[in-house]
Design a protein around this nucleic acid. Structure first.
Lengths: 165, 165
DNA sequence: AATAAGTTTCAATAATATTTGAAAGTATAG
DNA sequence: CTATACTTTCAAATATTATTGAAACTTATT
């Protein structure tokens, strides 16, 4: 397979994967492009390679920076900004976990806690509600704890551990 | 907080959580409703409670059944179909992992493997490409293995294990 | 201070995904 | 067999989300 074909295939696949996990296609594709780049890329280069507009590139680069997985860089003598991402897959996974934990697990935990105190006429329904939400709370908390450990772990502690089983 | 308020809050939150993870809102909300129900619900009841159309209810119930997390049930003397979901959060998590593994990890693994064999003029680029995709392949395979263990584990083996650390 | 190079914003537009509802399909009961 | 109760399908409508592009803004250079 030709390099260019492989590259496009990979970028395409990364975009699709992102979409399935609630990350917009352009954002995932920019990330894929940066993963493959041998040096930081300018907004122009990204626009050009992915055939997207300046506004789109800018917004998604910002989103990637918000996620903490893309960094702005400057080159001496150049006024333009350049962008790069870490090639360390392990670091990437940890950063994504960290953000998703903050953005999704924490809010759901807080809601589950909040709704625990419901009251009402129908005893059976209320009890079922409390039971289910309590179990979800418990489970979510376990996931949360696991992610905290994971995101703070050095190396691939996690997988090494699993190998021992 | 009144039961109804809590219920709505939970259903709403479950829908939002779903959206963030690439699952459509109605699908997640139907699931939330079934989680809280004290007995299997008919399509009518679901349509009524969530204020959605018959077609919508039907399609998303089918999708939930495809995911293996909702089951059709029949009541004696009733011609209608009823739907229920397992209240076991652990089982639910395993089933979702199983499906996502099949639907997303396996395809990406196959693409990563496929693009490994690229060739091209620019040695530096090609090498970087192979390096990055090889690392992603390795990582994805580890995740895949972990999920296999997870989805086959009894009880909360996983979390119990983590407690030991 | 004026110009140039580059970045950001955001209303308008386009693309995508979801939802509806009515018609077609199926199965059960009489 | 056929009327009835219910389910499924899917084209069209709607809602949501992503993208564009040009104007506004910012910063650096002369």
């Amino acid at each position: 397979m030709e390099y260019l074909e492989g590259k496009n295939k990979f970028i395409q696949a990364w975009g699709t994967l992102g979409s399935n996990w609630g990350i917009n296609k352009a954002m995932a594709q920019i990330h894929a492009l940066l993963l493959l780049a041998t040096e930081p890329l300018s907004a122009e280069q990204i626009m050009e390679e992915l055939q997207i507009s300046r506004g789109n590139a800018n917004m998604n680069l910002r989103a990637l920076m918000d996620w903490g997985i893309v960094k702005k860089e400057f080159k001496v003598g150049e006024r333009k900004e350049f962008f790069s991402t870490s090639k360390d897959v392990w670091e990437l996974a940890k950063q994504v976990s960290r953000e998703r934990r903050r953005r999704e697990i924490e809010p759901i935990l807080s809601i589950l806690k909040e709704v625990q105190g419901v009251s009402g006429e129908n005893k059976k329904e209320v009890e079922e509600f409390k039971k289910v939400t309590a179990e979800l709370f418990d489970f979510s908390q376990k996931v949360d704890n696991t992610l905290v450990k994971f995101t703070n772990s050095d190396q691939n502690w996690f997988f090494k551990l699993l190998l021992k089983i």
